[in-house]
């Protein structure tokens, strides 16, 4: 082993001195030597632990809700076909309980699509307003507005829906007021900020030369937006809408407060209805843990879980298209 000279400063008896000191390079510079790598290892383990906790949280949610949600079919013998296709929900009937969740599944999808139908044009329109029509002041006003809308808690949306929207629908449109219509309006306001902000990002990341190229050809702003920008941003815009729908599908309390919660399939938009989330919210506390009815609620929870996976896959598909 070769020995070399290494100048070392040390504080010795109150004076600074430089000493010629012999420590072989091998000892100084190889990993085996005692140096401060232990702190590095500790830190790394710490953050890896955090990552592991996230993975295990996700996995345990899937496993717990998966097994619990399947119990009604496996243990209680509820027919999966009946659960998904029958419109008769009557679990409390002692003689012949019925477990058809179709009205709620239908209600969830209906209210989600209807909400998207209103919120998508508004959200995308707002995004275009912020990026194309008035990029400076428009953004300055709308951006905080959107952020504040996100901040309003869902129970507050539900409460306003209950006290303002429901009576309004009852008085001016018809029906009881508690209806698909009310649910869809409340939800569309709730998902509007989600759609707007993601659509704004999608529009904002479009290359500048797209616009310039189109304007240079003499196209008007509307023609540019319609024929060039929207098609180019389409995957991003669809992602925005899908994310909004995912939020609408899983929203519970606000919808529950305005939709009426009846177990029948609605025949019109003014009919009261129910969704998976609202039935879970209402009945989870009132049913005995482990009973068949309770277990079917967990099956509905499983549907929500599966749907949120489906939404993620859809978004993944869209974003892979965006890269092309």
């Amino acid at each position: 082993m070769q020995i070399c000279i290494y100048p070392i400063m040390t504080y010795f008896r109150g004076v600074w001195c430089i000493m010629e000191k012999i420590i072989p390079a091998k000892e100084r510079l190889t990993k085996s030597s005692k140096n401060r790598m232990d702190g590095e290892l500790r830190g790394k383990i710490l953050v890896i632990l955090c990552a592991v906790i996230m993975i295990s949280a996700t996995i345990s949610i899937t496993i717990f809700l998966g097994t619990k949600g399947l119990q009604s079919f496996i243990k209680n013998g509820v027919s999966l076909i009946e659960f998904l296709t029958s419109t008769h929900w009557n679990p409390t009937n002692q003689a012949s309980p019925e477990y058809g969740a179709l009205p709620f599944i239908f209600g969830s999808f209906a209210v989600t699509f209807l909400a998207a139908l209103i919120a998508a044009p508004l959200g995308i329109g707002a995004a275009i307003f912020m990026t194309e029509i008035a990029p400076s002041w428009g953004r300055k006003i709308l951006q905080p507005v959107v952020e504040l809308l996100v901040g309003i808690p869902s129970v507050v949306y539900g409460f306003i829906g209950l006290t303002v929207l429901v009576p309004f629908v009852r008085a001016h449109v018809g029906g009881l007021g508690f209806s698909l219509l009310s649910g869809m309006i409340v939800l569309s306001v709730m998902i509007l900020p989600t759609i707007t902000s993601i659509a704004t990002d999608a529009m904002g990341t479009l290359p500048k030369n797209l616009r310039e190229g189109s304007y240079a050809l003499g196209a008007t702003r509307w023609q540019t937006i319609r024929k060039v920008l929207i098609p180019a941003a389409l995957p991003g815009l669809l992602t925005a809408v899908v994310l909004g729908m995912a939020r609408a599908f899983g929203e519970a309390l606000a919808v529950q407060m305005v939709i009426g919660n009846v177990r029948n399939l609605p025949s019109s938009i003014l009919d009261a209805s129910a969704t998976l989330t609202t039935i879970i919210t209402l009945n989870m506390g009132h049913t005995t843990y482990g009973s068949v009815e309770n277990n079917t609620l967990w099956s509905m929870g499983l549907i929500l879980l599966v749907m949120s996976f489906a939404f993620i896959l859809l978004i993944r598909y869209l974003s892979s298209r965006r890269k092309l």
Binding site: Q2, L29, T30, K31, N35, R36, M37
Partner: peptide, 15 residues
């Protein structure tokens, strides 16, 4: 560098 290969896996880069 002083008889050690800097590029070696064994090197403690921090030192």
């Amino acid at each position: 560098y002083e008889d050690l290969n800097i590029l070696s896996e064994q090197i403690n880069v921090v030192a």
